[in-house]
Write a protein that binds this DNA or RNA. Structure first.
Length: 508
RNA sequence: GGUGGGUUGGCCGAGAGGCGAGGCAACGGACUGCAAAUCCGUGUACACGGGUUCAAAUCCCGUACCCACCUCCA
């Protein structure tokens, strides 16, 4: 079965056919770096990371571009409020965002272009639109340039709306617009209220780019006039993506073949952007669960399904993930967690080994004909149900069910003493998890563990090992009351002990 | 006003005419000194009212409620 994707533009699932055999170009709208990322923001990144990984596993060479919007109204306003340069705020937030992505094992794109680095490309594109009669400088002397919606009959095609049905923005300042629905390609510099550093020269005077033009310019630059997939959050469909498409097509580019939009995460039924408390910022959520567990929670829902965030559901997801992990440990496919006597670590905290983040940029040089043998072997290990689920518009919930099925079967084989066949299941589980970016052994997940944490684990391990030794002696003497008392003491400290054929082990 | 989405068991979350996705929780059993882990088993869920059909959570009509977008938004 071939990959099918739900295209927001046509509102149905279609077979995915790339423009060029074996190659895929993807553009995803990243974030405006104006504040710390919350779980809603990273959902989008995780969803498209899964897409990108699945395409590569399916043998495609993927070029993946995700932009950073580092200049816009909000950045200017917030930076002013905080009394610092706008570029300092944007830079800081971009770093926060990268850290959040890294903690969730979101692979780096092929390139991550920033808007401020592409002003000349945008000016060039705007110039072409003016030449073709699809854009005009404002009639007042604001220095603004607007896209002329009336000049583009197809306007509204992406979001399925007719121009005449659209409400004009209630808060829009009509300024020099011919029609209130026209949107800004270029915003003239307001020297009284905006810093000069936030302006660039152009044929229409100093100014800064409008929001939508950057994506058209950067997608065109890095992916060409026509490319395969454009992604982003559902809220971007209109106006952002509608406008992008109108601009690019009016400038003579075919633009994206497929549009993919992810749904929201809400809290208490509200969009996060409106009701956000600090508790849902990624670093704060990661104090409660590990990055891999948060990712598992996000991947367990379909990307087009609305998710009502709750810590209870997050904890449940984490419990589900630990079951998978526990199977891999017992099947010998992963180093066991705390063994009571060695260098083990708690399952609640990842491995204690400190490693450099190994987020690799995705490899765009691997064509369909050059897929690495290891990768093909991995593909061979994937159960048919998993492949079918992923091919059906990235059906990650069904794919996760396939993981659970393999885990149950593997556990059954372990219970029956068939370690060889259990190992096969473990291999399949690892392969599936790898596709989903959820392999517990992925070095990306070790990167977040601090050396202080590692030392702490070693210390706990030593203390627990001592206590377990006492408990073993009590058990050997059949003094179960004393043995249980020791276990209770350890448990009171928040550490669970379980007896396994290879000896007791602990986890937090 | 226009456009689109949703309502599934105690909870999360798939599915889109016929076989009870999967997980978490719960209960029973096996195993265990006891636990834990694991395995086996246990649920008659699809907002409401009609209709179509041999068969409806799924299709049609209607109703209720919720949500998103309509130029700030992942």
């Amino acid at each position: 079965m071939a990959l099918r994707l739900y295209d927001s533009a046509t509102r149905d699932a279609r077979d995915f056919v790339p423009l060029e055999e074996g190659r895929v170009g993807i553009y995803v709208c990243g974030l405006t770096v104006q504040s710390e990322p919350h779980v809603g923001h990273v959902r989008s990144a995780v969803n498209f990371d899964v897409l990108q990984r699945w395409l590569r596993h399916s043998g495609y060479a993927v070029t993946f571009i995700r932009n950073v919007t580092d200049i816009d109204d909000k950045i200017l306003v917030k930076a002013a409020e905080q009394g610092r340069p706008w570029y300092n705020l944007a830079y800081d937030m971009a770093h926060e965002l990268s850290a959040a992505y890294a903690s969730l094992n979101v692979q780096r794109p092929t390139y991550e272009p920033a808007a401020t680095g592409h002003v000349p490309e945008m000016v060039e594109l705007i110039g072409r639109l003016v030449e073709r009669g699809h854009a005009y400088p404002a009639a007042d002397d604001s220095g603004d340039v607007y896209f002329d919606v009336g000049s583009w009959p197809a306007y509204g095609e992406l979001s399925g709306q007719r121009v005449e049905d659209m409400e004009a923005a209630a808060d829009a300042d009509p300024r020099g617009k011919r029609d209130p629905r026209d949107f800004a390609l270029w915003k003239g510099w307001k020297s009284e209220t905006e810093p000069e550093t936030a302006s660039w020269p152009s044929p229409w005077g100093r100014g800064r780019p409008g929001w939508h033009i950057e994506c058209s310019a950067m997608a065109g630059k890095y992916l060409g006039a026509a490319f395969d997939i454009h992604g982003g959050g559902i809220d971007l469909r209109f106006p952002h993506h509608e406008n992008e498409q109108a601009q690019s097509r009016a400038a003579g580019q075919r633009f994206a073949s497929y549009w993919l939009h992810n749904a929201w995460i809400t809290t208490s039924g509200e969009k996060m952007s409106k009701s956000l408390g600090n508790s849902l910022l990624v670093p704060n959520v990661l104090e409660r669960v590990r990055g891999v567990e948060l990712r598992f929670y996000l991947v367990s829902a379909h990307y087009r399904s609305h998710v009502e965030f709750s810590f209870e559901a997050l904890d449940e997801a984490a419990a589900g993930y630990r079951r998978i992990e526990s199977f891999l440990e017992r099947a010998g496919d992963l180093p066991a967690s705390g063994s009571g006597s060695g260098s083990g670590t708690g399952t609640g905290t990842g491995t204690g080994t400190v490693k450099e983040p190994q987020l690799r940029p995705i490899d765009m040089e691997i064509g369909a004909e050059h897929v690495e043998r290891a990768q093909l072997r991995l593909l061979d290990q994937l159960p048919a149900a998993f492949v079918a689920a992923m091919d059906d518009d990235l059906g990650t919930p069904a794919a996760v069910a396939a993981v659970h099925d393999a885990v149950r079967e593997g556990n059954r084989l372990l219970a029956a003493g068939d370690r060889d066949r259990a190992a096969e299941q473990a291999g399949a589980v690892r392969a599936m998890l790898d596709v989903l970016g959820l392999d517990p052994a992925d070095p990306a997940y070790a990167a977040g563990t601090s050396s202080a944490q590692g030392r702490l684990e070693t210390a706990v391990d030593t203390l627990v090992a001592g206590l377990l030794g006492e408990r073993d002696r009590a058990r050997a003497a059949r003094d179960y009351a004393a043995a249980d008392a020791i276990r209770d003491r350890i448990k009171a400290a928040g550490i669970e002990i379980e007896d396994t054929p290879s000896g007791p082990r602990w986890s937090i």
